[in-house]
Amino acid sequence: MLPELFFVYFAFAIILLSILVVTRKNPVHSVLWMLLLFFHIASLYLFLNAEFMALIQMIVYAGGILVLFLFAILLVNIKEEIRITRFIGAWPTGLTFAIGIFIVIFVSIKSFVLGQQGTYTIDFIKKESHTKALGKLLYTDFLYPFEIASLILLVAIIGAIILAKRRIKS
């Protein structure tokens, strides 16, 4: 009973917070609502027996990406931002499109069949600890994608530096 209660709370909080994120006028408010949203998502991961993912969510998203967003907002002028309208003229089109996608996915979920169960049962993860199991899998079966991910991050670093540095006037 109690886990269901918690899940219902987190589900409603996440939906409410994400609506708040996309509708606030001030981008700083938006970022702060998003911080709360990420905390809620991380606690939802804790309920799903994924402690390591919850921690990564907090560190990478709340600690890294949101600070990046805040810096970008502070560099971009938001003074006139607050005065003008926040949506583009054709926002009902976007809303219709979004509701359409929601209905399509919602109908198609009903015919979803759960596949066969894997070998990583909850007892196994509890015995082995989540981080250890995840790390073993990541560094053995998924080593090649892991290297590709590191390459993507390297490219992102170099690209960001090149894009953001000022042109040297010759």
């Binding site: 994400s18 996309v22 981008p27 931002e81 926040r86 976007g94 929601f102 996915i105």
Partner: peptide, 21 residues
């Protein structure tokens, strides 16, 4: 829940003016 959050993301993507949002 995941569908709802995704849909809100699509809505925000299609209809906000500010590029950061």
């Amino acid at each position: 829940l995941s569908t709802a959050v995704f849909t809100i993301g699509v809505f925000g993507f299609l209809s906000r003016k500010n590029i950061i949002i």
